[in-house]
Each structure stands twice: as structure tokens, then as C-alpha cells.
Amino acid sequence: MDLKEKIRVIPDFPEKGISFKDITTLLKDKEALKYSIDKFTELAKDLDVDLVVGPEARGFIFGTALAYNINAGFVPIRKPGKLPHKILVQDYVLEYGKDSLEIHEDSIIPGQRILIIDDLLATGGTLLSTAKLIEQLKGEVVSIMTLIELTDLKGREKLSNYRVESLVSYPY
């Protein structure tokens, strides 16, 4: 299946010059959604993962399904102010702004094997910040997976210390 055919591209969103990859069209297509989850599951099946970690919000979509398929737990990485317990915070830069991510301090037991999953690898800021949070808690990042990679933004270079898998790539 060609997943690019299921992803809508919207020029100049959220600002001029950005080519937004809208995955809502893929998510509503049951065959495309199943295919995507099955591909992630195939990539993860031999990694001996304890936890799947997904950044808000689209990492939750793929992360919980993948965690279920590979018999792992799921940990959400949230945007500021949404976690009710003790947290760690990591700031990062997006391709069009700045933000921060948070994780509960007790989400990961030292030595646990972690797979990070999100919808998009662009500049690598979100995924690198997620990996740093995991490593602060002494988890081992064994893989990073994304639905889409924007290759011209060179986010993979920021993640060169990690195994990175993407199902679809675009120049930008």
C-alpha cells in the first residue's frame, strides 16, 4: 500500500512556507490505519520492548496500538501542565516554534527497553527531547519510529545515536 496516497498535503499551514502533512485522511481509512500499525508491529516485534513512549498527541494514536500488539506498556509524553504527578521537563525547538515536553518521574524503571513512536520526524526536536527524558529516567531507547519523515529538515541527523525507522518520507 502506498501510504503517501492516504496523506493529505496542505501548503502554507500553519504558516506560509510550511507543507503540512495531514494524517487524518490516513487515520480514517481503516485499511491504511491497519497497514501502518502492522508495519510498525513488524519493525518492533524482535526488539524486546518493555514500554512504548508516544509524544502528544499523535504519538498516542500509534503508540497505544503498537504497545498492545507487542505486549508492552504505554507511556504518554505530554505538553506542559497536563500531568498531575511529579514530572521531568524538556524544552525543544519545532520547525516553526518552541515548546516543552513532560513525563511523570515514575514512568520508567531504570534499564527498561523503550520504543518511541510519533507521527512525524521533522527537525528531530520532539523525538530528541523525548529520548532525553527517557534517558534521564535511565531507560534505554532501542528504537524511534515515525509514520512520516521530512528528509530535508535533517532531523535524523539529530537522532544519529538511535535506530530510526520511518514508513514514509517526503523532502519537505
Rank of each mutant, 00 (worst) to 15 (best):
M1P: 04
D2R: 08
D2E: 01
E5F: 04
E5L: 13
K6F: 00
R8P: 01
I10P: 09
K16R: 15
G17V: 05
F20G: 05
F20K: 10
T25D: 07
L26W: 06
L27R: 12
K30P: 15
E31H: 12
A32T: 05
L33V: 07
L33E: 02
S36P: 02
S36Y: 02
D38P: 08
K39T: 11
K39P: 07
T41C: 13
A44P: 04
K45Y: 02
K45A: 03
L47D: 09
L47R: 12
D48Y: 05
V52S: 01
V52H: 06
V53S: 05
V53L: 08
V53R: 14
G54D: 07
P55A: 10
P55V: 13
P55G: 09
E56I: 13
E56H: 04
A57Q: 14
G63M: 00
G63I: 07
T64R: 13
A65P: 03
A65N: 09
A65F: 15
L66E: 09
A67G: 04
A67Y: 07
N69G: 04
V75R: 10
P76R: 11
R78G: 09
K79T: 12
P80H: 13
G81C: 12
G81I: 10
K82M: 12
L83S: 06
P84I: 13
H85E: 06
H85F: 03
K86N: 15
V89T: 14
V89F: 01
Q90D: 00
D91R: 15
Y92T: 10
V93H: 03
G97V: 09
K98E: 15
S100T: 13
L101P: 09
L101Q: 12
L101F: 07
L101N: 04
I103R: 06
I103T: 07
H104A: 10
E105D: 00
I108D: 03
I109L: 07
G111H: 06
R113A: 02
L115R: 04
I117F: 05
I117A: 06
D119I: 09
L120H: 10
L121E: 03
A122D: 01
T123P: 11
G125L: 02
L127I: 13
T130R: 08
K132Q: 06
I134D: 02
E135M: 07
Q136F: 00
Q136H: 12
K138S: 15
K138F: 02
E140G: 02
V141M: 08
V142G: 10
I144W: 08
I144H: 04
M145I: 14
T146F: 08
I148Q: 05
D152C: 05
D152R: 15
L153M: 11
E157F: 01
K158N: 12
L159Q: 03
N161H: 13
R163H: 06
L167W: 11
V168F: 00
Y170A: 01
Y172A: 10
Y172G: 15
